[in-house]
Design a binder for these strands. Structure first.
Lengths: 197, 197, 197, 197
DNA sequence: AATGAATGAGGTTTCATTCAT
DNA sequence: TATGAATGAAACCTCATTCAT
């Protein structure tokens, strides 16, 4: 395929950026991990930042697709809310490196993340809208829909991160084993807070 | 009392580290903001990392004290749980820069945060223990106490961060005005999840 | 006839080298301006330097031909001297980009220009010989013929360059309008210095 | 003194920039020639360009002072004109490296020289004004004063450059020996063109 | 205790050149 | 002949740290 090298670079970049963070990641290291020459990265990307931004957008877009796929067939607001949160948790558990990357940078400070944080806010507002729909059609009873959306996003994300740091990020089975406890806790929150009539 | 210059350095360091993150923060900048010569920082701290770790410990210790003060007079587990979460939110709203710093680095990747993340885990386990006490003495009914502790920590922290990024971090009044909605949402979660008999 | 692509490359190279100088000119840019792939340049030229040297020789050779054409029908030494200087000025005014290129590099420092500076010296020595002939056959009375040759070359060249920098190099009419003042000044110098009996 | 290192850097930079030109000059090389660390250059100068511009301004300012000193005691316009040209030639012969640097860059193309070329134009306009004064008070009879000023500047400069390239730039005596022929030629031009009544 | 000039290892980026197609 | 993706040496610049004063 045409973009064979680009794929190699992307894969290596997720690893390195996730392990080291943006600043500590060295282009040399990414090039070596990708098995290409340093110049090859610069042939395909304008700069370290360009590569990074490309990666974040790619990651967020994968997450969004993952969530949307899980939303198919969920028609009530409560089904939709659960589908989103479930997909969110599962995606992050399955893609630990990407999860670290997305969440670290979601809360970081740099100019470079402005655009990215806007997209995260947008992602959260989708949750918000589902909650608002539920309120409007009488499924839910919630005062601060936006705050709740953020709370769910935060609770789910931080729980996964906490597990990632507690376990070895590369041991998929161990991480997967944690999913039920996480989802069960989130389900409790949703079931009760969202006072179903 | 701590040396005058050390205080100046600490104050400047919180600002700069919070604004730029560890890697992007320059010792030059901190020195200038503190109004001391660069060499003076190195007279009082071994390295950039030493300064940073000192700052994080200081911040975490302030948070802990703030929480402990709010715990005085709370004797039931549910009062204690609420007191912790309330103090947590209030401290972070009142100390936005420190909040950014603590939370960014709490989720970061570097070696340098190993020690710090251990302390965060410890902080969370205090919440966990209150929940477990509540369960043991019949106040609460919870399956996964640790997950719940993390969920509360995550929900509270991310809500504050979200507000910080949405508003101007330096406008205290605006941020303070957000506290009730945050606390109200957390209260709902606690009240319902923790099924009081 | 020369290969079509080679012409395209030459034309583009004059533009780029003249605008940016040797070091700042990029092969990418030349290729793009020529509408060929970068590899194509390397198919026809061994290196950037090879292309550059080819260009300079081409330019100098055009100048020489231009001068020789203007010399036809000039039989006295003073007619010849004036014909050379006039052609020199006119050629440079008509080929501003080439003028910049030739004169910049004529005064530059690099190894790569050794060969080229030799040709410039040769060009100047033609002027010198005309002056010497004029002295020998009694037309002129000059002490330092070589110095005078260089002075005329320098005065003529720098005057054109000065006009090129003062005006927009691409506005031919503006530049052409400057020619009379330049030639008139040079004529005065020649008429008086070369004391005609 | 305070600026000991700055002086060392300046001296080294003249050598290297003059020998290699701006683009081929390496900061490493300048640092080594100056006997300081690379970082030291960047402690005192913002960039390679900053160093270069500083050098050019310094050089032009030395030239100007040299000329002004030679102008003292020259009261007629013709004395002044000769004093300027004489100082110009002598300064360049005595400071060969600087001469190469100033003249190469005076005719170069880059953005970075815009400011510098403006100063050169200013320098030339001083010559122009002397000529105009001479015309006004009846000493001279000249049609195109500006063109003549440029012609004199160009003739003088190129003659010196020509000698510099023909001889070894470091052999002061050889170069000095060339001065009379250069000045004699320029004197002839001035004496005759500027028709004294 | 405090200073700030000096250092140099290390990182990002550029770009002439190559070569498989 | 022509292409353009790939290469990697080399250059500029940064900045934590040191140390003489």
């Amino acid at each position: 395929m045409r973009h064979e090298k680009v794929d190699l670079i992307f894969q290596a970049a997720v690893q390195i950026f996730s392990d080291r963070g943006f600043d500590q990641a060295k282009m040399d290291e990414i090039a070596q991990a990708a098995g290409v020459a340093k110049g090859t990265i610069y042939y395909h990307f304008d700069s370290k930042e360009d590569l990074f931004v490309g990666l974040m957008n790619e990651g967020l877009s994968q997450l969004t697709q993952y969530v949307e796929r899980n939303l198919e067939g969920a028609f009530t607001a409560s089904d939709q809310l659960y589908a989103i949160i479930e997909a969110h948790v599962q995606f992050f558990v399955e893609n630990g490196k990407l999860a670290k990357l997305l969440l670290n940078e979601a809360f970081d400070t740099q100019e470079r993340q402005l655009q990215f944080r806007a997209k995260v806010r947008n992602y959260i507002s989708v949750i918000d809208q589902v909650i608002q729909t539920g309120v409007r059609n009488g499924e839910f009873e919630v005062k601060h829909s936006q705050e709740l959306a953020v709370a769910l996003f935060g609770a789910a994300s931080v729980m996964v991160l906490h597990k990632i740091y507690a376990h070895d990020i590369d041991k998929q089975e161990e991480l997967q084993a944690q999913t039920p406890a996480i989802l069960s806790t989130l389900e409790m929150i949703m079931k009760n807070v969202i006072k179903m009539k």
